[in-house]
Design a protein around this nucleic acid. Structure first.
Length: 583
RNA sequence: CGGGGAGUAGCACAGCCUGGUAGUGCGCUAGCUUUGGGAGCUAGAAGUCGCGGGUUCAAAUCCCGCUUCCCCGACCA
């Protein structure tokens, strides 16, 4: 590509709409993407080339793993989502529309129903299983708040694969194959990532893992063991229960004390002169199944210095949604906000969860269920006994940095991550709802067991930039760079330009993707643009070195340039590109 | 969906409070000089001031409504 003919609209200044997220800022500035609306982007020539490369890597690894590519529509009639209930369940995130006959349609946010319907119409026998079908398709979700450029869009490119097996064991095998394929994809794209166990949500999944790309701008928090291979999304994380200072009986009788206007843990602990870890923090949540469900009240108790993990809470409650209760909801149940405790609870409170870490604690400060009062020297053991069937001890506390690994006891580290991929065993969640069966060897009808596997293709592009950029611009890995090399003559005509032309043509002939910066610009401008674009290799054709029969080769991620022989430059560069792609 | 901010030339922004000829820098066009990390000078082109309504002799500026975008939070199969 000759730069003078290229559609590379770079910006000298940071666009106002993207000051925050590095990938957003740089992809816009370097002319890879343009924003059309909130969470809607155009891919310009450079951006599309990168997107296509990531797509190709994904496609190669999926094909290698035995999956077959299909293309399902982005525009879908509502019937299938209505069949599984997701027409209602998806709520406002679904882009809905109707045709001229007023029939309901939507844009596909994900394609479980469509693919399941396809397989349902074809597969009748165990002989046809297993199958793994995938597509690379634009998905549409009406995100309440699109943000961070390509990281959270309303239109985004996703690879989604769906496996269909005769039984759970087969599904696990398919899952394992996808896990390996994903590892290959993330490695080839050049991403620093962690595979973490994840919450499967309420969608009936049993086994699932996320491929989390480490980045400061990530929306997810993950914990990783500093010693063993344990890693988890904090939503699903568990940790060793740590010693609570007040775990042993104090020998003192529990006692109600006045704590006027001391509502927060910090206020109470300071007032009673105890550590926050010797107090119990109460929480009140409403939970329910359906989106319109009125919900029920659940009280939670965790150690004073802990927080509740709402996802773990939902899991324990078997709920589809959980939110903090409002004061009027507490009042209605006869509970006093700020002074909630596990003793003397009104009968209207039917669900009480006590975190496992304090379930055995014997000497704690707790709310007295009476305005302005707390109870000291309280035993959670006794509290649980008295609660009977209403109470349950389970792990609902949030896990974070500094907690100890449940499997090996080493310290957990916490990172921010971008969810780049997610693999699930879905089981029969969809096949049951959609009645997708096959006949086994004995002629018995069985439900097909599914798995689903997603990779955010456009999100990986942005993620790569999040991990690979510096003050001057993007630093692409060779495998997904839009071009491998940029040839930069320091004059737009004469011997330097002639040598550059010659090198450029040799490179192209060898299959190297090259840009020739044939613009009549000052060197500084060319260097700045080359750095901003992030092309992995730059060859500078300068006067002095050319007179010695040499060229300067500089890697984008290296500090200095090296001199290479003009004669063999093309071969050397081609070899280097090839080696870098191979990783 | 709750809270905050902003829409003025391709980009970044000033002007608005105190109504009266639409401005600056970058980019763009032409010319001259310059040429190893975003050059200098000269001359130019380029704007329904987000949209609609109102007040006024007169609105980018004041008032009302709408809309879009950004940020924080909630949400995120």
């Amino acid at each position: 590509m000759r730069y003078t003919r290229a559609f590379f609209p770079t910006l000298r200044e940071d666009p106002a709409e993207a000051k925050k997220t590095p990938s957003h800022r740089l992809l816009l500035r370097a002319g890879y993407i343009r924003q059309v609306g909130a969470g809607i982007y155009e891919f310009l020539p450079l951006g599309l080339r990168v997107l296509r490369k990531v797509e190709s890597i994904v496609r190669e690894e999926m094909d290698r793993a035995g999956a077959q590519e299909v293309s399902l529509p982005a525009l879908l009639p509502a019937d299938l989502f209505k069949e599984t209930g997701r027409w209602d369940l998806f709520g406002s995130t679904l882009f809905r529309l109707h045709d001229q006959k007023k029939n309901d349609y939507h844009l596909g946010p994900t394609h479980e129903e469509v693919i399941t319907d396809l397989v349902r119409s074809v597969v009748k026998s165990y002989r046809q299983l297993p199958i793994n079908l995938y597509q690379i398709q634009w998905k549409y979700r009406d995100e309440a708040r699109p943000r961070a450029g390509l990281l959270r869009c309303r239109e985004f490119l996703m690879k989604d694969a769906y496996s269909f097996d005769a039984d759970e064991a087969g599904a696990l095998k398919s899952y394992a194959a996808m896990r390996e394929a994903y590892k290959a994809v993330f490695r080839r794209v050049g991403l620093d990532y962690r595979i973490v166990s994840a919450d499967s949500g309420a969608m009936g999944g049993s086994t699932s893992a996320e491929f989390q790309i480490l980045a400061e701008t990530g929306e997810d928090a993950i914990v990783v063991c500093s010693n063993c291979d344990y890693a988890a999304n904090v939503e699903a994380a568990v940790a060793r229960r740590s010693e609570t200072s007040a775990s042993a009986p104090s020998g003192q009788r529990h006692k109600m004390v006045a704590t006027p206007d001391k509502k927060t843990i910090e206020e109470v602990a300071a007032f009673l002169k105890v550590e926050t870890r010797a107090t119990v923090k109460a929480g009140a949540f409403m939970f329910g199944k359906g989106p319109g469900d009125a919900g029920a009240l659940a009280l939670t108790f965790v150690r004073g210095d802990r927080r509740v993990n709402e996802v773990a809470l939902a899991r324990e409650l078997g709920a589809n949604w959980v939110r903090m209760a409002e004061d009027h909801e507490l009042e209605k149940a006869g509970v006093v906000a700020g002074y909630v405790g596990p003793f003397e609870l009104p009968a209207s409170v039917s669900v009480v969860l006590v975190d496992g870490e304090i379930a055995g604690a014997q000497d704690m400060v707790i709310g007295a269920n009476k305005a302005g009062h707390h109870v000291t020297h309280a035993s959670m053991v006794v509290a649980l006994e008295k609660l009977g069937a209403r109470g349950k001890a389970c792990d609902i506390r949030a896990v974070g940095a500094g907690d100890l690994c449940a499997s090996c006891g080493a310290a957990l580290q916490e990172f921010k991550g971008i969810e780049g991929g997610h693999i699930f065993v879905l089981g029969t969640h969809y096949t049951k709802k959609m009645n997708v069966t096959f006949l086994d060897e004995k002629g018995t009808e069985n439900l097909i067991v599914m798995g689903c596997y997603g990779i955010g293709v456009s999100r990986l592009v942005a993620s790569a930039v999040e991990q690979r950029h510096d003050g001057d611009g993007i630093v692409w890995p060779m495998s997904i760079a839009p071009y491998h090399v940029i040839v930069t003559p320091l004059a737009a005509d004469g011997p330097m330009m002639e040598a550059a032309e010659k090198l450029y043509h040799s490179l192209v002939a060898m299959g190297v993707e090259a840009i020739l910066d044939d613009r009549d610009e000052r060197p500084g401008v060319k260097f700045k643009d080359a750095d901003l674009l992030g092309i992995p290799l730059r060859v500078t054709v300068g006067k002095k070195s050319l007179e010695q029969g040499k060229l300067e080769l500089k890697a984008r991620n290296a500090k200095d340039a090296e001199l290479i022989e003009l004669e063999t430059a093309a071969e050397q560069i081609a070899a280097r590109v090839k080696a870098a792609i191979a990783g």
